[in-house]
């Protein structure tokens, strides 16, 4: 297993993909951080800021998930789909015919890159939003224990997203298809679903089990949650739901794609 992990790690870091997306994530989150902090602090005369105090800070910092999760998802899923696209999967299975080992190694090998994405993403977000929050708003609250937890868990959550991405890749090995699905789901389906479901009391609870909402629960703060007024799951439950998505994808992938003849 150690050898399989080392091999998968080398595959991830030996192409340009991960750091291109790392830079993309940093740039995107820096921009989003500035925009959100601006929204919370600069208001028209007499108007009230949508969020204030520590809530404004945690909601902004939690965007590493709600806005940034597309990046670790893509990195993770491409770690599997690129093997099929470039037919390197043949050699991978020749050197390691135990396919469960290959799948598990692929999932775990995304963790270091996921942590790197999370760390850089959180730093980028804080770098632009914290100065604005402390200058015009109620403060950046960077020493508040609750805020520190949000920042650290933001990094952790990003790593979990990378694992979920790899799991999705084992299920959906077509690279173009998986990228389209990820973009459509993260940029369109889930934001709409979270807002829409939140508007109806009968189904409001369901939205907490959407993957992005579960990740927000793990972080412990959510901009969507604040806007839609939907309660998040407890942290532990959010973590379980998110990991559950990964486990189900990986299991289905192992039982379908990775059971067939390959190469």
């Amino acid at each position: 297993m150690r050898n399989a992990l080392l091999a998968e790690h080398r595959k991830l870091v030996s192409t340009r993909l991960w750091w291109v997306l790392l830079i993309g994530m940093a740039g995107y989150l820096a921009f989003i951080g500035a925009v959100m902090a601006f929204t919370f602090t600069v208001t028209a005369d007499g108007a009230e800021a949508p969020l204030t105090g520590v809530d404004a800070a945690t909601a902004t910092y939690s965007l590493v998930n709600a806005i940034g999760y597309v990046f670790p998802l893509v990195v993770g899923s491409l770690s599997v789909t690129s093997e099929f696209r470039h037919r390197t999967i043949t050699q991978t299975l020749l050197v390691e015919p135990r396919r469960t080992v290959v799948v598990v190694a692929k999932l775990l090998a995304t963790v270091p890159v996921g942590l790197a994405l999370g760390l850089v993403g959180v730093l980028a977000l804080v770098a632009t939003s914290a100065p604005l929050l402390s200058w015009r708003g109620d403060g950046a609250f960077l020493t508040d224990p609750e805020v520190i937890a949000v920042l650290v868990l933001g990094v952790v959550t990003t790593a979990v997203w990378a694992v979920v991405g790899a799991a999705l890749g084992t299920l959906l090995t077509n690279q173009v298809a998986v990228v389209v699905v990820i973009l459509a789901f993260t940029q369109l389906v889930e934001p709409i679903a979270r807002t829409a479901l939140g508007a109806f009391d009968a189904v409001a609870g369901v939205s907490a089990y959407l993957p992005g909402a579960a990740a927000d629960a793990l972080i412990g703060a959510s901009l969507f949650g604040e806007i839609a007024g939907v309660d998040l799951l407890p942290r532990w439950a959010g973590a379980l739901v998110l990991l559950g998505y990964g486990a189900v994808f990986a299991l289905l992938g192992r039982l379908t794609t990775f059971r067939r003849d390959i190469g």
Binding site: K11, S14, T15, R16, L17, S82, H86, R87, T88, I89, T90, Q91, L94, G263
Partner: peptide, 12 residues
Amino acid sequence: SSLDPGFHPGRT
């Protein structure tokens, strides 16, 4: 063995 070897074009 080398069966229909595939390569990632971005890897050296």
